[in-house]
Write a protein that binds this DNA or RNA. Structure first.
Lengths: 224, 224
DNA sequence: ATTTCATATTTTGTCGACAAAATATGAAAT
DNA sequence: ATTTCATATTTTGTCGACAAAATATGAAAT
């Protein structure tokens, strides 16, 4: 079950992956202090590689470091998430517009098949929100890949992707937006298939706006 | 003249700043191998802090690391820059639209004053392209700040900002786009002052497209 | 002369120890 | 009881040394 398929990798990468996973799943709570010595021992390594991993995670915005005072897990407050979704809307909107031009017919078909699987999953068991949630991110990232813009892939892939997963873990238990989301995904694929970039961008932007609205409401409830 | 105003900082930060500066100015050539031991000695520090600095620069995309084979300065080829400018257009366009809503009158006035200074600089001496170029980035970043979106500031500030500076150093000697650029900047400030976000976004997008066109042509000439 | 392979050298990856800074503790003064 | 300050403890910052991997070197075979 655990991820042990690290080909032949450096300890820093192992630490970075394990830390990222722990942060995303909430095992390490938001805002929590990360003690270097403690983590290094838990992972069975020296502090050197661990410190390098922390620098990496800092670059991914999963961790915030203060000189001489250590690292803390990032806190996803309302403002941070709002900013994140605004950036996402701009970037994924653009990705979608370009992807409508650049993706092959084959890739668009694959996207459709991916959605079929999602639909099956939803009908089968509405409960397994986790897998569904990861699938959603899959969908989005396939489109980003379709834009052929490497910088976009880096930005959305390695960084925002993790923050989104983190956000999902926090809010997913009661999330019941799978139905409308799937339908919106279908619409987007439709626009891509017709090679209508403008429409695809607009649909993607609305989709992300909708997701933010839903999350925003959830945050309100939590705070109440 | 040299930057020695590091309050009380960590060696890693010193190394990161010096490396970033060397990379941006071209002192360290694109694609060049970065030897840890050599750099550590040059900076008068151990390899630990230097390695951490390299991780930071990797996160800023100034450096590319390959496990067990070391770090190299990033190569700004045509595709990379094209991708960068596409992302910039989306992000700065968005920033501009939001800034039209969010900036204070005071901030917009400051922007105008900044442009007056640029104009004076240009009239005074068309030669000092460097200072002018930094000023241009200043202008763009003030608007990004006006969006109040911290993620945007991080993205454009710490990362893309450096890549752009790097690009400028490479192409600035023969860049003669200061005139039209200033005029476009004035138009943008005008739109901001009128609180017309849509117009401001469109003007910013065109401005960035124009910059890319100009750089693209320069790359063509270099390759010929 | 060119290629192939074993060996030597260089370079990266990792550790443990010490220094310096931040934090926690507790005694003294009010 | 509360605050202030000095001291003890913990935690981060840094170094030098060794191990492991990658690379360079040069001898042997064709």
């Amino acid at each position: 079950m655990l991820v042990n398929t690290h080909q032949q990798s450096t300890l820093t990468d192992v630490a970075a992956h394990r830390l990222a996973q722990s942060i995303v799943t909430g095992e390490l709570a938001q805002g929590q202090k990360l003690n270097e010595a403690e983590l290094a021992e838990r992972f069975g390594m020296g502090r050197g590689p661990l410190r390098e991993a922390l620098r990496q995670l800092e670059g991914m915005r999963l961790v915030k470091r203060i000189p001489n005072a250590g690292a803390r897990v990032v806190v996803l407050d309302r403002k941070t998430l709002s900013d994140l979704y605004a950036v996402r809307e701009a970037l994924e909107g653009m990705a979608c517009r370009i992807a409508a031009d650049q993706m092959t017919d084959e890739e668009i078909s694959q996207l459709s098949i991916l959605l079929d699987r999602h639909e099956a999953q939803i009908n089968e068991q509405g409960g397994k929100v986790y897998a569904q949630s990861e699938g959603d991110l899959d969908f989005h990232f396939q489109i980003v890949r379709g834009s052929r813009n490497q910088m976009l892939m880096d930005l959305l892939g390695s960084e925002q992707y993790q923050l989104l997963r983190m956000c999902r873990y926090r809010t997913s238990r009661n999330a019941q937006r799978t139905g409308p989301a799937l339908q919106q995904h279908r619409q987007i694929v439709g626009a891509l298939a017709q090679r209508d970039g403008e429409l695809a961008e607009m649909l993607m932007r609305r989709h992300i706006q909708g997701a933010w609205l839903s999350i925003s409401e959830m945050i309100d409830k939590e705070e109440a």
